[in-house]
Simulated scan of single mutants.
Amino acid sequence: MVPILLSIALSLPGAAAAEPAGALGLGRRVTPEVIAAWDIDARPDGEGLPQGRGSVRDGAVLFAARCAGCHGGRGEGAAAEALAGGRGSLATAKPLRTVGSFWPYATTLFDYVRRAMPFDAPQSLTPDETYAVSAYVLHLNGLLTEEASLDASSLPKVLMPNRGGFTTDPRPDVPPAGR
């Protein structure tokens, strides 16, 4: 079975051009450029956020074009989860876990949008567009005014309503969140 799978894999376009990474001759060497393309995490303290800036107003336009089809015009949910609302619902029988009710850090929103959205074209938004969409979603949750803008300095300072709603892992070998 292995020889058959290997022959299929090697017959795929680009397989012959890949530089073997190990003794088995599979894969390719990982370069700093390849790692950099995937090393895009944004931590709670803002480490990893790129340069850029986006406003709530610009985010409203982008949200309407790229997000509303799945998340509803005001983030109320449609084919995909609701992004707004749910404040005060976490302790009820039917909690609504949204960006504004559940998520502890605004940087998590940026990180998720940057990596996985829009669903049909993940990682296609520029940093400015990602800041703008994040600003708009935070605005929908009553956390930013319509005149607000976000950048790498201001985003980590947004105080999320559920920031204190999580506990630290008590295991001594697990570093605290954000480190």
Score class of each variant (00 low, 15 high):
3 P>R: 07
3 P>Q: 03
4 I>P: 04
7 S>D: 10
7 S>N: 10
11 S>M: 03
11 S>H: 03
13 P>T: 01
13 P>K: 01
14 G>K: 00
16 A>E: 13
17 A>P: 06
17 A>T: 08
22 G>P: 01
22 G>N: 13
22 G>Q: 08
23 A>F: 13
24 L>S: 06
24 L>W: 07
25 G>W: 07
26 L>N: 01
27 G>H: 02
31 T>C: 09
32 P>I: 01
32 P>N: 04
33 E>Y: 04
34 V>D: 14
34 V>L: 12
36 A>I: 11
38 W>D: 14
40 I>T: 15
41 D>W: 10
45 D>C: 00
45 D>F: 00
45 D>M: 00
49 L>P: 00
49 L>W: 00
52 G>I: 00
52 G>V: 02
53 R>Y: 08
53 R>E: 10
55 S>C: 04
56 V>R: 05
60 A>D: 04
63 F>K: 05
63 F>P: 03
64 A>F: 07
64 A>K: 11
64 A>M: 11
67 C>Q: 11
69 G>F: 14
70 C>K: 12
72 G>L: 10
73 G>L: 15
73 G>Y: 11
74 R>K: 15
75 G>M: 12
76 E>N: 01
77 G>E: 13
81 E>D: 15
82 A>Q: 05
84 A>K: 07
84 A>Q: 08
89 S>G: 08
92 T>R: 14
93 A>Q: 15
94 K>A: 15
98 T>D: 12
104 P>E: 01
105 Y>P: 04
106 A>D: 02
107 T>A: 02
108 T>Y: 14
108 T>W: 10
111 D>N: 13
114 R>E: 07
116 A>W: 15
121 A>L: 05
122 P>V: 06
122 P>L: 06
125 L>W: 13
125 L>K: 07
128 D>N: 14
132 A>W: 03
138 L>A: 03
140 L>K: 07
140 L>V: 07
142 G>V: 11
143 L>Q: 10
145 T>C: 10
149 S>G: 11
149 S>Y: 07
152 A>W: 09
154 S>A: 13
155 L>F: 03
156 P>H: 00
157 K>G: 04
161 P>R: 09
161 P>K: 09
166 F>L: 09
167 T>E: 15
172 P>D: 06
175 P>N: 04
175 P>W: 08
175 P>K: 08
179 R>H: 05
